[in-house]
C-alpha cells in the first residue's frame, strides 16, 4: 500500500505493507539509521523520535499510524555543520561512550526541554530514564541536558 510520511520536513511516498513498525520503515525504506533499534520492545528508548512534537518509541508504533503526522528524527535535529545545542552539549559533556543510545536520548531531551525549559537535575534524571545507556554515561547525560537547557534558554 502507498503511505505518505512526513519526515524531517519532507514528504516521502512509500510503497509498503501497513503492518510494519515505524522504526523499521524509517531505517529500511528511508535509510535513517539514526533511528536505532535495540530491544524493539519499548524499554531501551534508542528508537525515540518525535511525532507531532512528542517523543514516541518508534519500535512500538505502526508506520500506518504515523501517516499525517510530522516526524522528526535525529537526522533532522541538526547537521554536522550546524549542530543543535543538545548535540553540542552531549559532545561537550561527553554524554555517551558507544553512542548507540545517543540519538534516542537527544530526542527525549528535546521533547523534555520543550515542556520543561528550566528543569532541576533531578527532574532531568527522571525524564532521561525512558532511555537506557548501557555504557553508564548517565551523570554526563544529565549534565548535557542541563547545559543544553541553559543554551536554549539563552537563545530564546
Amino acid at each position: 500500500m502507498k503511505l505518505t510520511l512526513n519526515v524531517n520536513g519532507r514528504n516521502h511516498e512509500i510503497e509498503t505493507a501497513l503492518d510494519r513498525t515505524l522504526a523499521d520503515v524509517l531505517r529500511n525504506e528511508l535509510g535513517l539509521i539514526g533511528v536505532r533499534v535495540s530491544c524493539a520492545e519499548g524499554e531501551c528508548g534508542s528508537c525515540t523520535i518525535h511525532a507531532d512534537g512528542k517523543a514516541v518509541t518508534s519500535c512500538l508504533m505502526l508506520a500506518a499510524q504515523a501517516s499525517g503526522k510530522k516526524l522528526l528524527t535525529v537526522e533532522g535535529l541538526g547537521d554536522i555543520e550546524k549542530l543543535h545545542p543538545i548535540q553540542q552539549a552531549f559532545i561537550d559533556e561527553q554524554g555517551f561512550q558507544c553512542a548507540f543510545c545517543t540519538p534516542g536520548f537527544m530526542m527525549s531531551a528535546k521533547a523534555f526541554l520543550e515542556e520543561c525549559p528550566n528543569p532541576t537535575e533531578e527532574e532531568t534524571a527522571i525524564a532521561m530514564s525512558g532511555n537506557i545507556c548501557r555504557c553508564g554515561a548517565y551523570p554526563y547525560i544529565v549534565k548535557a541536558v542541563m547545559k543544553a537547557a541553559d543554551q536554549l534558554r539563552q537563545e530564546k
Binding site: 519499548g42 528508548g45 517523543a55 514516541v56 518509541t57 525512558g130
Partner: peptide
C-alpha cells in the same frame, strides 16, 4: 502514570 513504561511510550 509517571511510573508507567517510559515518557516516550506514554505519549502513545
Amino acid at each position: 502514570t509517571k511510573l508507567m513504561c517510559t515518557p516516550q511510550t506514554r505519549t502513545l
